[in-house]
Design a protein around this nucleic acid. Structure first.
Length: 482
RNA sequence: GGCCCUAUCGUCUAGUGGUUAGGACAUCAGGUUUUCAUCCUGAAAACAGGGGUUCAAUUCCCCUUGGGGCUACCA
């Protein structure tokens, strides 16, 4: 039985961020690589930033992604509860231990005092930091103040000098001057712990073996380690993964467009692509493979392949990967996926055939309605479309090809792709032109579009004989009026 | 400002004390198949700068510069 236990510990402040997805993926991969457990824990210690329904949302999107957690809200587990506000009594017990040990202390400083202190320090060009004002209050003083009903927080007592050494699995040793460390707040006035305290207690109690989190946490890393030391606990391994950046610079944010996994889902990105892309942003396999399913990633994943510098989120590569994963699906699976996009169709087409054609060239699902609209209604189009330099077709050849194709198509009794292809290629021979010269104008007449999924024959088959002939006649009429 | 992290093509990255510095996306140019696409072939494209160490540094060390993070009774 593997000892590896990782957790994803989001605060429920909205949708799952595309950058957080990467943390989820690596958490999952590291755990599953060793047949370990992946845990979901909700860090809702900030009451102000709660968003209703966020937890439900999060669980739903993880489910959509196909990332299952072994313990967490809803599924339970022996280290629960997995929602921090349901663990308040636990934190209380542990904070008292710390105070008893003299590793933490009551602080009665008002927010006002702290604000003034900060302002004064900034004015003097000093680093804003708590001045340890309440650090040496006697037990009696503390008790008296509590009795009077004075509000308090509990702070961690940091060493005043020396250095604290921490170890990141990716970067190695990092050293911090203890002077830089502030006596941080562990328990807020409202008796709810801060992230710094709750996450350490929970990681320990839940036997987390590897903490994977964003690199923005490196600065508080020494404080975390000092907390473990204060408790006398063995810290887990820490892996700080580099941040995902906007192409414009800085953290990926709302201003860069879509930041929620939800947004990508709605735009027609596949979970497979999103996961694959996230993994590749910061991790590299031994060989040069790029396209992976989650199970394949689990097999290939290793900490050795992890990078340490921040990575820019490049949507073009995501799109490409999405196309790759679309192509890798079975036709049945793909068909089921795109079924909803056919709703607006009144005509009864061979939708499976449309799916087959679509699967070859779709990048993101949301493009589909625009791609296939022409099946329903022939759009207005410019007759210059009939001219194409590369194909060496012009309006003259087009007109001839269209005219002659009518009788050819009319004579087809068994309307299938094989026959249509055979007959049309015969026509090409008869005219004595290149395939493209005749088939280009037919495709234009049938679709009214320069770019279509599938070629003339595929479109003809889907459209049906009657509709084809009608559309070709429209084309002839347009060309005839030149 | 202080502290910390980081630095290979535009982007994601591989790599090594001696390499023609490799791959992928994107871009461009050809080609095939019934068009675009798919597919194939090819091109252009990078070791931030300066000092060391060394016979030899893209690789190791230092500095500079650039990028980023943290600096809350937010996570």
């Amino acid at each position: 039985m593997s000892k590896v236990r990782t957790r994803f510990a989001p605060s429920p402040t909205g949708f799952l961020h595309i950058g957080s997805l990467r943390t989820v993926v690596f958490d999952y991969l590291l755990a599953k690589r060793e047949q370990g457990k992946f845990i979901l824990r909700i860090e809702d210690t900030d009451q102000k930033r709660q968003v209703k329904g966020a937890v439900k949302n999060l669980i739903e999107i993880l489910d959509w992604l196909g990332i299952k957690f072994d313990e967490g809200p809803g599924v339970g587990g022996k280290y629960g509860p997995y929602i921090q506000t349901e663990r308040l009594d636990i934190y209380k017990k542990y904070i008292e231990k710390l105070v008893e040990k003299g590793e933490a202390y009551y602080c009665f400083c008002s927010e006002n005092r702290l604000k003034r202190l900060r302002e004064a320090q900034i004015a003097k060009k000093q680093a804003p930091r708590y001045d340890n004002h309440c650090r040496s209050l006697s037990k009696e003083e503390v008790e008296a103040k509590i009795k009077k009903g004075e509000k308090f927080v509990i702070r961690q007592k940091m060493p005043l000098d020396g250095k604290t050494e921490v170890f990141d699995e990716l970067r190695g040793k990092i050293e911090f001057d203890n002077k830089e460390l502030e006596d941080q707040i562990l328990m807020k006035t409202n008796q709810i712990p801060t992230y710094q305290f709750a996450s350490v207690v929970d990681d320990h109690l839940m036997k987390i073996s590897d903490v994977i989190r964003g690199a923005e946490w490196i600065s508080s890393f020494p404080k975390n380690i000092l907390l473990y030391k204060a408790f006398g606990w063995q810290p887990p391994r820490f892996i700080h993964i580099p941040l995902t950046m906007s192409p414009k610079g800085g953290k990926l944010s709302k201003r860069d467009g879509d930041t929620a996994v939800e947004d990508y889902k709605n735009k027609g990105y596949l979970p497979e692509a999103l996961i694959n892309f996230s993994a590749l942003l910061g991790w590299h396999p031994k060989d040069n493979r790029e396209v992976f399913l989650l199970e394949e990633l689990v097999k290939e994943f290793s900490l050795k392949g992890m990078g340490i510098s921040s990575a820019v989120f490049d949507i073009k590569k995501l799109k490409w990967l999405n196309g790759e994963h679309i192509r890798r699906k079975s036709l049945e699976d793909f068909h089921n996926l795109v079924l909803p996009y056919y709703k607006e169709f009144k005509n009864n087409f061979n939708f499976l055939e449309i799916s087959r054609v679509l699967q070859k060239r779709t990048e993101i699902l949301s493009e589909i309605p625009e791609m296939i609209k022409f099946f329903n209604i022939l759009p207005k189009y410019d007759i210059n479309l009939f001219e194409n330099k590369k194909m060496k077709t012009d309006k003259q050849i087009s007109l001839e090809a269209l005219k002659k194709s009518i009788s050819v198509l009319e004579n087809i009794k068994d309307w299938n792709e094989e026959t249509i292809k055979e007959k049309l290629l015969n026509l090409v021979k008869e005219i004595g032109c290149k395939n493209g010269q005749a088939l280009w104008p037919i495709r234009i007449a049938l679709s009214g579009k320069q770019f279509t999924p599938g070629g003339a024959i595929e479109i003809a088959f889907i459209l049906g004989k009657k509709e084809c002939i009608q559309r070709i006649k429209i084309g002839i009429k347009k060309l005839g009026l030149m």
